[in-house]
Nucleic acid binder design. Structure first.
Lengths: 202, 202
DNA sequence: GTCTATACTTGGATAGAC
DNA sequence: GTCTATCCAAGTATAGAC
């Protein structure tokens, strides 16, 4: 089926992505979505089969698909940097999806069963590189689970807060800057001292 | 009015805290709450005036009230450590509230207007210490907003994931350990090199 | 392929019995 | 102080018109 930028189906997807991010799944009604999308409420059922199927479709279409490619057989530093880079880019490109994912991660519902496996894979890969890096003496932390949680917290935290504008003054920086800044903070946090302890340079 | 651990009002508060954390505000019905609390749906209105008022009551009763006491006129390191310590303790003691707060922060709704001011104050204090520390040459980062976001991400990230058990193997550690671990990660991330640049091994 | 009208379900609040 | 029954509003899905 042909799918242009402006057909009703696409408009529904974009509208629901926006509204789910702002108001949550349960806080968004199909009537709201269709108003935002300039379509009729019946089209949700017609195109997708229901509200939940629209939600599932978002994850299928806007998932960070290629995060784990090119992340095999490289060093812990490279591995972690690569994942942080991809996630940070995704976080900027698909900030609405990150909001949606954030809201889901901490909830109990079964809406994202399929997606969970996919996300777990990313976190387990991160964990693998943390273990490796610690074993090689590159990283210095006590608990791999705690370190993992800090990293997940950072790379899944939305960069937009509809509710807390007053705190954040700076305008958007470019993507590359954000990636490097995030990688630096995380590697430093892990006790990787290369960039500020000269004796460490080899 | 006398309030025991087991009166209906308290049971409603605890049940709603639990369910809001797991399923979100919109994902929780007053009927669910009252089933969990072993009371009747009418009591929500009777005691609180409505679902939203129960929600507000949670923030009034279980807020991290004393976070900003004893955080004046101290050094950036001490200031940031103190806030991270208090928030980490709160995160462990009131993990359900942290889940609820997390869900709210990224949303658009006006439910937590009062609470927002309170939260903003904490973040602005953190920001102040970050600026101070950078000016004093203690911290090394480019963007204070980015640094602030990393810290907020870490100290507001729930430590429980109903949805991602498989990734996290370790059992709960004690509170003090968690506090010190978190402070160390953050200070390192900020480029505060005191604890590993002299000689790494102890 | 798109929309209108509507039936069905669920949630929140309330009146009144005990 | 607590519960039962019920009203009203909102969300969802569907049948069928165009």
């Amino acid at each position: 089926m042909e799918q242009t930028q402006n057909d009703a189906k696409t408009r529904i997807l974009l509208a629901s992505k926006k509204l789910f991010a702002l108001n949550g799944y349960d806080g968004t009604s199909v009537r709201q979505i269709c108003e935002e999308a300039n379509t009729n409420a019946a089209l949700i059922s017609y195109y997708f089969g229901g509200k939940e199927s629209v939600y599932q479709a978002l994850f299928e279409i806007y998932s960070p698909i290629n995060i784990l490619t090119q992340v095999q057989n490289i060093s812990p530093i490279e591995g972690i940097s690569a994942i942080v880079k991809k996630m940070t880019e995704y976080r900027i490109e698909e900030s609405e999806m990150i909001s949606i994912i954030q809201q889901e991660i901490f909830m109990n519902n079964a809406r994202i069963e399929n997606y969970k496996k996919y996300v777990s894979e990313i976190w387990l890969t991160l964990k693998y590189y943390l273990d490796e890096g610690k074993a090689q003496g590159i990283f210095h932390f006590d608990s791999v689970d705690k370190a993992l949680i800090y990293i997940i917290a950072i790379i899944t935290f939305p960069n937009r807060f509809p509710n807390l504008d007053c705190v954040f003054a700076e305008e958007d920086s470019n993507k590359e800057e954000a990636v490097n800044d995030t990688i630096r903070f995380i590697l430093r946090g892990l006790g990787y001292a290369a960039d500020h302890c000269e004796v460490d340079n080899k």
